[in-house]
Write a protein that binds this DNA or RNA. Structure first.
Lengths: 136, 136
DNA sequence: CGTGAGAATGAAAGTCATATTCACTGACGT
DNA sequence: ACGTCAGTGAATATGACTTTCATTCTCACG
């Protein structure tokens, strides 16, 4: 994770585009790589999938965006960096929403004690059915 | 997911084999599909990968084994059903261990209230470095 | 202005776990 | 023996992710 500290202002053009796409998606939106690619292609026809891919990887390494991997989902999603939170996934339609929950730090501590691991983070994902899927 | 309630005693031969492999792996062991296949092939040379795959899917549908998907891991793992618990993954060596932590039910409740989802479950995964990886 | 080194790019192909297809086998009730 | 259908193995398909490679672009330096 040796961040090379590329200043935000000097991002390559396409990285900037990708960054903006993720940022303007808004907190709580979860764009897959294909989503980001589709939006990028609207604004820069001809942009390659690999460029978007590399942009997302790079921006994630720089800590400028977050990659969310939800068990059960078929692909990773990307969102702006924001306050720590959990995700809830609808097992019916696959939609993902944010939920404002953070593991208490004492839990991280006790897990570290119990396992001997140096704990960096804890991810929480809930599974259930969203309101609209429960409707029908 | 319409469980056909296949009684454990009448499992097809190979499903039984797969079930036993996962069971005897012991709680806290995390076998990938390839691991299970390798062990199955020891005992039944010629068994097909697809058979193991279907067995794991079926047994999971029947609720007889648990599938664990850990963000960052490259493949799912399987373990015996047991008391609810969380997992911790070493970002260095990729090993996965169990840890006895369960989300308080009031958390599930409050998430349900906040999101409008009917929450079935909550998965917790910690990321860190295991003791041996921290050693060197 | 050149111009040269290194970064960025797009197309294509590679990787890998997961999932499905299909023809064949085997078990079981009749 | 027969018919049926679940189970099986080989092969193939799928889909996300990742890398390779030849080309293009950038830009500091002359």
């Amino acid at each position: 994770m040796a961040v090379t500290t590329l200043p935000e202002g000097s991002l390559p053009k396409n990285y900037r585009l990708i960054y903006d796409i993720v940022q303007t998606s808004g907190l709580g939106r979860h764009l897959t790589m294909s989503d980001v690619f589709a939006r990028a292609a609207e604004q820069r026809p001809g942009i390659g999938y690999s460029t978007v891919y590399r942009g997302l990887v790079r921006l994630r390494q720089l800590g400028m965006i977050s990659e969310i991997v939800v068990p059960g989902a078929d692909s990773a999603t990307y969102e702006p960096v924001g306050p720590n939170h959990a995700h809830v996934r609808c097992v019916a339609c696959g939609s993902i929403e944010d939920v404002g929950y953070t593991l208490p730090s004492r839990v991280l501590k006790s897990v570290a004690d119990e396992t001997g691991f140096a704990i960096d983070s804890g991810d929480v994902t809930f599974a259930g059915r969203c309101a609209s899927c429960r409707a029908e």
